[in-house]
Structures are given as structure tokens and as C-alpha cells.
Design a protein around this nucleic acid. Structure first.
Length: 430
RNA sequence: GCGGUAUUGGUGAAGUUUGGUUAACACACCGGAUUGUGGUUCCGGCACGCAUGGGUUCGAGUCCCAUAUACCGCCCCA
């Protein structure tokens, strides 16, 4: 095999693409009911769009960015996530302007890229669906976004959902907490894992996220962000919880939950579920939160935002594991069998006529004998076959057969070409 | 970026421990079983040769090295 796809990429072939379409269609239908509109932004951006927004210390920037210099010596990066590009577009197109409704609500779906070691459900090119809503500080909007994420999984039939909630507060809260956390961890510096020793000063919140047992015993007794919230941040969080209650959406507050990206503040959340395909216990299938300040970071006005993102590869693994039915309607209606050279000259126009009547139709292109053609029709699961041979040509008729019942009837070619639907209904009552 | 395992036809794969004629078996697919009809059965066909490139050897799918890719773990995260 001479050529192979690049490491960490995948071909999505017929058979699988239907499942992707199912998920994407479900998302579009749902988002429409929430009045979120699709936005499509470039698959690559200037490197700085991501480095500015994700935080210089985040792994995403330091080692996972798929970046390169183009022929014009521009530093380009393939998008590692969706939010930064959407925010850039929001600012560049001045979507914060008075002529646009607020909140400005969009969704996106498409490929993202991270330069990392591939593993199950984690590739270098992967796909995300995400939503963003700009221009409102209201906690009710946070909850709409959360509710939409949950509704999406419910609509797909995912069971065993769990909503994990936390707040990172505003800048003041976060600074105070950061200091408290460092003060708490510093005395145990030597006992922390190597990774966490590095994290401690660069990004102490990430220590909370450590899976290392050594760290976890400190994390358990660490001060909680909730105790360091300003009155305003606290009020926002309380309002979010109250709104969730109103919607009867269950949640658990997890004060150790943090974010890999630096731009989040206030509400952050994760939707989790259990599945063997994704690992042990509850694993995250959707993550989101509020990012006030991000728009300013990219040169826009002070406009707040909130959104979520979810990975489609992981979602599809999950749907497969939970045996969610992802049907697609691609059955073949009519297979046209031609017998003999003369007849075979005549069948394509008939196939076309049937297609124009709104039915799916196909024929043989491999010069197969009648038996082979019927075999093919059977394998394609054709509902009907339409056979034309020399005698039919002479009488300008065709033999229409129901593959399910074996029932056959002679119909006129003119009828087939001009009123196929009616011809079918009259003869097979369907 | 680090570590482990793997890589034989369209598919599942045997064979690699003990290097030595024609790469097992099965499924799928194609063709045939008296002229234009789907299933079953029967018969026949189906690996430019064992990921790629080197090396060891009289001789390698079987041993060694490098590279690529996949999977798993770490890191991180969707």
C-alpha cells in the first residue's frame, strides 16, 4: 500500500457517514428551535488568534497546535477548537453592532486539529459541534446553553447523563482564589507530583485536575473557589443553579472542575455519561462555560459570551456503545434489469425517468446476465425490479416485479416514463 | 514528547516458538450448473506474494535494524 492517510486522520466511508449525518441533522434541528444560526469560519487562522485566547501556558498552545509558516511567511494554525475563530469572526464582522439581535447566537460543526498522539476517539483531525451566544451577562443564558446541550444528548437517546457544574468567578474572585490555592499548596511542594510542581505557579487551578494520587489527597482538602467568590460572582452562580432547578435539570457542583483553556470564567459545566467505550466511570462528553472578556481579548468591545463544544468522534463511539439506532433511508426503490444489447440501450432513460419521479433507481453497468442482475437487485435490497428484454421492447412494455412478494405485472413504458408513481400505486397499492 | 503491543488477500485470519518445494481454513465477491429472474446446493476462480526500506543467511512471512501506520498507557483533553 503506497499511500496512507496522515497519522491521526480518518476516512469516513459510506456506512459510517450516515451516522455522522444523523448526528449533525439532529443538532441542526435542535439548535434551530433555540434560534441558533450556523456560522462557518476558516479551518485555519493566524496563530495568534489561538495563542491569545487559549492562554500561553495551556498545552493546546505549547505542544498541541498544528501550526506552520505559509509561503508568505505567515504563522498559521489549524484551528484546535471552535470558539476562538468564532469570536474573531464576531469581532471582525462587527456582529456586536446595534443592528444585530442580542444575544447573538450561533453554532458550528466541523473539523478541528490537534497535534497529539492518536488514541481511541482522539485524533489529530477530529470534529466538534459547538454553540456560542454573545452579548448577555444573564445567568439565564448560561442555563439556556446548558439546557440545549442536555436536550441534544436526550434527543439522540443518550442515557445516564450527569451535569457537573462549577464557577471560576470573575477576575477578582479568581485572583483571590489563586493566591489562596498557592498558599495552601506551597508548603506541600515537595510532596506534589512533578507535573503539579510545574503547574503550581504557572496555573495552579490545574493542580485540582490532576489524576495523580499524590496530588489528590491535597486536592481533597484544598480551599474551594466557592469560598472566594465576590458577591457578584456568587449571585451569578446562585442564579444559574436556581434556573437549573426551575427546569428540573439535575446537577452536581464540582468545585475541583477546571478548564484546559484559560479564557473561561464564571459558569463552567460538563455533561458526563458512562460508557465502556470512553473509559471507566463517568467521562465528559461535552464541556462549556462562560468567557466574558474573550471578545475584548481579540480586539472587540466588552461583550460577554457563553457556549459549549463536544467531540463527534467520542459521541459516535458512545452512541454505538449505547446502541442508539441511527437509521438512514437509503433503500433502493427500483432496479432496472436490461436483457440484451438493444434493451440495455434503453434502460438508462427509464432509470432517469424513475429518478425524476422521486424514486431511487439504479441499473447494471457491468454487463451482467439477467441472473446476475437479479442477484444484484436482491443484494441492494431493491423493492422492485423493472425488467426490459426484447419482447418488452417490441410491445413497449416492461415487467414490474415486487421483490418482496414475487408478484409481477406488465406495464407500459409510457406509463413508467410519465407516471411512475401512479403506475406503482395502481399495481401494488402502495 | 515518552513507553508497550501489533502490521499476512476484499474480510476474519493460520503459519513466525524449531528460517527450507505450490502461503491453511472460512466468509465475501466473480463465473458456471442447456437459452430472460432473486434463496439453498454443487462446481470453478480469487495474495504483482506476507506494511515499507535495508541487513544476516546457500535460503526469510518466519532472525536483526530503521521508517511508517494502528491500538493501548503516560501527558493532556473533545
Amino acid at each position: 500500500m503506497r499511500y496512507q492517510k496522515p497519522k491521526g486522520t480518518a476516512d469516513i466511508l459510506p456506512g459510517a457517514s450516515e451516522k455522522w449525518q444523523f448526528v449533525e441533522t439532529t443538532a441542526r434541528e435542535l439548535f434551530k428551535t433555540y434560534q441558533y444560526k450556523e456560522i462557518r469560519t476558516p479551518m485555519f487562522e493566524n496563530f495568534e488568534v489561538f495563542s491569545r485566547t487559549s492562554g500561553d501556558t495551556s498545552d493546546i498552545v505549547t505542544k498541541e497546535m498544528y501550526d506552520f509558516k505559509d509561503k508568505g511567511d505567515r504563522h498559521i494554525a489549524l484551528r484546535p477548537e471552535g470558539t476562538a475563530g468564532v469570536v474573531r469572526a464576531f469581532v471582525e464582522n462587527k456582529l456586536f453592532g446595534p443592528e444585530f439581535n442580542k444575544p447573538y447566537k450561533v453554532y458550528y460543526m466541523g473539523p478541528m486539529f490537534r497535534y497529539e498522539r492518536p488514541q481511541s476517539g482522539r485524533q489529530r483531525e477530529f470534529h466538534q459541534v459547538g454553540v456560542e451566544a454573545f452579548g448577555s451577562d444573564s445567568p439565564v443564558l448560561d442555563v439556556e446553553v446548558i439546557a440545549m446541550a442536555i436536550a441534544f444528548f436526550k434527543k439522540l437517546g443518550v442515557s445516564d447523563l450527569k451535569l457537573s457544574l462549577n464557577t471560576l468567578g470573575d477576575k477578582e474572585s479568581r485572583d483571590a482564589y489563586r493566591k489562596a490555592l498557592i498558599d495552601y499548596l506551597e508548603p506541600h511542594f515537595d510532596e506534589l507530583s512533578e507535573d503539579s510542581q510545574v503547574r503550581l505557579h504557572k496555573n495552579p487551578l490545574r493542580v485540582l485536575d490532576s489524576k495523580d494520587e499524590k496530588d489528590q489527597k491535597f486536592v481533597a482538602d484544598a480551599p474551594a473557589i466557592l469560598d472566594y467568590l465576590t458577591d457578584e460572582a456568587k449571585a451569578h452562580f446562585e442564579a444559574v443553579k436556581m434556573q437549573l432547578d426551575q427546569l428540573n435539570i439535575d446537577y452536581v457542583v464540582d468545585s475541583t472542575m477546571v478548564r484546559g483553556l484559560d479564557y473561561y470564567n464564571h459558569t463552567i459545566f460538563e455533561v458526563m455519561t458512562q460508557s465502556k467505550s470512553l473509559g471507566h466511570g463517568y467521562t465528559t462528553i461535552c464541556a462549556g462555560g462562560r468567557y466574558n472578556g474573550l471578545v475584548e481579548e481579540l480586539g472587540g468591545p466588552e461583550v460577554s459570551g457563553v457556549g459549549f463544544g463536544l467531540g463527534l468522534e467520542r459521541l459516535l463511539l458512545l452512541l454505538e456503545d449505547q446502541e442508539v439506532a441511527m437509521m438512514s433511508d437509503d433503500a433502493l426503490d427500483v432496479y432496472v434489469v436490461g436483457i440484451g444489447d438493444a434493451a440495455n440501450q434503453m434502460t438508462l432513460p427509464i432509470v432517469q425517468a424513475i429518478r425524476e419521479a422521486g424514486f431511487s433507481s439504479d441499473r447494471d453497468y457491468l454487463d451482467r446476465k439477467p441472473k446476475g442482475q437479479f442477484k444484484t437487485a436482491d443484494r441492494l435490497n431493491a423493492k422492485y425490479t423493472l425488467t426490459i428484454g426484447e419482447s418488452e421492447l417490441e410491445s413497449q412494455t416492461a415487467n414490474l416485479k415486487s421483490m418482496a412478494t414475487g408478484e409481477e405485472v406488465s406495464v407500459s413504458l409510457t406509463d413508467v416514463k410519465q407516471h411512475f408513481k401512479e403506475t406503482l400505486e395502481q399495481n401494488f397499492n402502495k
